[in-house]
Design a protein around this nucleic acid. Structure first.
Lengths: 210, 210
DNA sequence: TTGTTTTAATTAAACGTTTGTTTAACTTTG
DNA sequence: CAAAGTTAAACAAACGTTTAATTAAAACAA
């Protein structure tokens, strides 16, 4: 698994970008072939079909997501809130670094009919929850965090806020006060704003006594 | 404006559902015509094109959204936090009652190329922000709310959390602990869970001293 | 009311493209 | 020489849209 040659990787990369920009059905295999500079037939030859190509795009990023989960620091000297902060920053970085993939996820999770891709999405979300829940519950048992918090909804808030911010970028970019920034500065500005907001939010609800 | 006959309304309603379920490009005009029980040509006849039909679906719901904004209670005897609570509940109700439209919004806001529909979305979001900001800033001036809160991001969190919850329903529904509920009970359970979570979240960040 | 004319609604069929996929011939590689 | 890679061309199916013919409704004059 995961041993793609240059041409295959080029197809996957271009497909990811186009699927993100115009949606799966809004992108034709001819679009992909042209931008990846390969013959149309190569897509079927390497991936079997357009649907299988989408699956390949997914599984490609999924490996990175699995790695992300596994390399979680098990540093027990860290305070619970610091762990949460670290988790938030890692989520933000990951999502801002793979915006195209996150766009596809946002789209595909809306499909009502079951599909391999849809199953993969919710499987991944379940794994992310398994990452966050023990941190919270351990801190709750230790009396550091408040007990009446819905961890599943908290993760939904984390994902939702970041996923909403991704498409909002193009609007924020047009604000006159952001006009002076170049792409790198703007990305950093966005990262900081998201990070600050989410950390405040999580600190408030996790440590605020009602 | 907004004076559609039964057949036109039927087309709009069916189109809204199918666009939400399978996406704009994933839905053919033949699908829509068949489910709405009209001839294919009637879609072009009434709306001009498939794109214009999507616009019609949008403008149709947009009127309701504008009405939603305007009928905001200007009750000044309400405490700021109560106003926020009321706003949250109204957002949740609105979004759960027009899930198909919210699905389409989630999808269409991801499109990178500018379009009339995309413009309408961000225009609407701006208006929602104009609804929430004065409540917060007034309470900040009065010393009731903390001052270091990013209102724009807070609205992003509100939208994002609800928008993430909509597709999550199908997964939640399969949980064994939710199997006993009928559709109405489940919808109420969802509404309550969202409401409780978001109110706690907003109260914590708006009143918690750092 | 009547018959007539104009407008709107509705239809099946056809339009020209574009779609995803396959074929069969060809080139490169090992 | 065999296997893998690559290509232009062709494939049938589906796409959004239009056409031309027909029916229904509305408007109007007698």
């Amino acid at each position: 698994m995961e041993d793609y040659n240059d041409k295959q990787l080029s197809i996957i990369t271009v497909a990811e970008r186009l699927f993100a920009e115009k949606g799966f059905h809004g992108t034709s295999v001819r679009d992909i072939a042209q931008e990846a500079d390969v013959n149309i037939a190569m897509i079927s030859y390497y991936f079997g079909s357009k649907d299988k190509l989408l699956e390949a795009v997914f599984r490609h990023r999924m490996y990175a997501s699995r790695a992300f989960i596994n390399e979680l620091v098990q540093n027990d000297t860290m305070a619970p809130l610091e762990k949460i902060y670290s988790l938030i920053d890692r989520f933000i970085n990951k999502m801002l670094n793979e915006q195209n993939f996150q766009c596809i996820m946002s789209r595909e999770q809306l499909n009502k009919e079951q599909s391999p891709v849809r199953d993969l999405i919710w499987q991944l979300k379940g794994e992310m929850l398994g990452l966050m829940r023990p941190i919270v519950t351990n801190a709750q048992d230790a009396g550091t965090f408040t007990t009446d918090v819905d961890v599943e909804m908290l993760l939904t808030t984390l994902f939702g806020t970041i996923h909403q911010t991704i498409p909002a970028q193009h609007v924020l970019r047009t604000y006159p006060e952001n006009a002076h920034m170049n792409d790198e500065e703007f990305k950093e500005y966005l990262r900081l704003r998201l990070s600050t907001h989410l950390k405040k939010l999580f600190k408030a609800i996790l440590t605020h006594e009602f």
